[in-house]
Computed example of a mutant assay.
Amino acid sequence: MTYQLSHELTQCQQRVNDFLATQLTQYDNFNSPLIDAMSYAVLLGGKRVRPFLIYTTGKMLGVPLEQLDHSAGAMEAIHAYSLVHDDLPAMDNDTLRRGKPTCHIAFDEATAILAGDALQTFAFELLSQDTTISEKQKILQIQLLANSSGAKGMCLGQSLDLLSENKSVSLSELELIHRNKTGALILASVLMGFNLSKYVNDQQIKQHLTHYAQAIGLAFQVQDDILDVIGQSEKIGKTVGADQVLNKSTYPKLLGLDGARQKAEDLYQAALLSLAQLPFDTTALAELASFIVKRES
């Protein structure tokens, strides 16, 4: 990772963390483990790739950062809720997330389920409370986040992923799983930044950004699969080998480790090609694509 990207990611992490922490103070009068679990889940850490994509895409297209805060916070709340539920015994049954006990271990299973539910509604609460954008823009953001996180996106991918355990799936079936499970929110992040720009009706720009986001969304999952084989738990912050224990179909399993690495590289090059078609400074988005396929955590 270059110093520039590291610096920008750190700034993004700090900004969205501060925003979320401030927004969570509206629940301070409720002395409940639920609120503690919500805060634990959403402020636990993480790379904040999705908020970074919202901020970076919006900034590239001339959107002031303060108009992107609610969208970035809402996206991270949805992502956090998905991780809480993904870690549950009924799903992946993980005990480690971002180097710390998963939410149902730190609290209990019922509280974790409710914290995930509450974070999901918190996301749409944030979008509805945004006074920096127009009502039309609010509706666009709400529709996009709802579609990408529900039965047309992330939840569909999660369901297909569970159904694929202990089964052999084809490469195209695996891609369908991950374009929804991981890719849907990454695509939505780029488009949420785009939606708030003056270019919102430019279909050519939207198409290039969509192709970029689809490429890095799939590359992110390919690299995750690779790290589940060769990564170190202390670096990636979760248990290595979990996919093998659950007998999941993964890119290394289908393509071999070298084949999976080549797949990630091909997706990276596709992402750069899409960015090259845009008449803007796409350096930050290009560096993020590089980070995604080279990361060790």
Rank of each mutant, 00 (worst) to 15 (best):
L126E: 00
L9N: 01
E8L: 12
E287M: 11
K138D: 00
A276L: 14
L176V: 15
L88G: 03
G183M: 12
C12F: 07
Q143N: 12
S189C: 11
G116M: 01
I177N: 15
T95W: 06
Q67C: 15
E125F: 12
Q203D: 07
V49E: 01
G62N: 08
V293K: 07
N29S: 15
S168H: 15
D258G: 11
L88W: 01
Q158K: 10
H79C: 09
Y251T: 10
Q4D: 14
M60F: 01
N247G: 14
H7D: 13
A37L: 04
L126F: 04
D108S: 05
F124T: 01
S134V: 08
S82M: 06
L285S: 01
S172G: 05
E66F: 12
G217V: 13
S274E: 11
T239D: 07
Q11G: 08
G62S: 07
L20W: 05
Y251I: 10
G46E: 02
N166V: 13
M75D: 00
C12S: 14
A110R: 05
Q232C: 05
G241I: 00
L20V: 06
F122N: 09
A270C: 02
Y212W: 04
N180Q: 14
G256F: 01
V169P: 15
T250S: 15
D228Q: 10
K47T: 03
A72F: 10
Q204F: 05
E135G: 09
H178R: 12
S82E: 04
E234G: 08
S6C: 06
D36Y: 08
A115S: 00
F19K: 08
V222P: 07
H104M: 05
D225T: 13
L20H: 06
I113A: 04
I205C: 00
V200S: 14
I236Y: 00
V169W: 09
G46P: 07
L174Q: 15
